[in-house]
Amino acid sequence: MSDTGSPANKAADDAPAPTEHLNIKVTDNNNEVFFKIKRTTALRKLMDAFCERQGKLPSSVRFLFDGQRVQATDTPDTLEMQDGDILEVVQEQIGGGC
């Protein structure tokens, strides 16, 4: 007798597989831009595209995910991002210490 028809196996088969693409929202509090990227794509592409669309220099802004700075070599997989997550863009500030 085969177990392929049992409810336990059917539930395991119905579990959604992780999608290859993620929808990521990038916001700088004035603008929101949505990107659809692969889980293995370096976030440098997304960061450069956002800066180009907004007319900002990549060296003048910082990207944050859950309060942590995003590196250009990071990927959605390395940051454990989920579909619909938000990257925040803030103006880089230098100085302030005396």
Score class of each variant (00 low, 15 high):
31 N>A: 13
92 E>F: 10
74 D>I: 03
68 Q>H: 11
16 P>A: 12
66 D>G: 08
72 A>M: 11
27 T>C: 02
9 N>A: 10
16 P>C: 02
73 T>C: 11
82 Q>I: 11
63 F>Y: 04
42 A>S: 13
43 L>S: 04
23 N>R: 15
3 D>A: 13
17 A>S: 13
94 I>S: 15
46 L>F: 03
45 K>T: 13
57 L>Y: 05
72 A>W: 11
56 K>C: 06
11 A>N: 09
80 E>G: 07
48 D>G: 05
3 D>G: 10
92 E>I: 07
37 I>H: 02
92 E>T: 12
76 P>G: 05
44 R>D: 12
83 D>Y: 06
60 S>R: 06
67 G>T: 07
6 S>N: 12
90 V>W: 02
88 E>M: 09
28 D>A: 00
7 P>K: 13
25 K>C: 08
88 E>F: 07
87 L>D: 01
9 N>W: 06
33 V>T: 10
43 L>A: 00
30 N>I: 07
35 F>P: 01
50 F>P: 02
96 G>A: 00
96 G>F: 01
11 A>Q: 14
47 M>D: 02
36 K>N: 14
60 S>V: 03
68 Q>N: 13
89 V>I: 02
64 L>W: 05
6 S>T: 15
19 T>D: 12
6 S>R: 10
97 G>Y: 15
15 A>K: 13
2 S>V: 08
76 P>T: 06
47 M>G: 00
37 I>R: 06
62 R>F: 04
67 G>I: 06
48 D>P: 00
88 E>L: 12
76 P>E: 02
40 T>E: 13
24 I>T: 02
12 A>E: 14
14 D>C: 11
86 I>S: 00
64 L>Y: 11
25 K>S: 14
35 F>I: 00
10 K>R: 15
34 F>H: 10
13 D>V: 11
92 E>D: 09
18 P>C: 05
7 P>I: 09
58 P>D: 05
64 L>C: 08
72 A>S: 15
41 T>C: 07
59 S>M: 07
44 R>P: 00
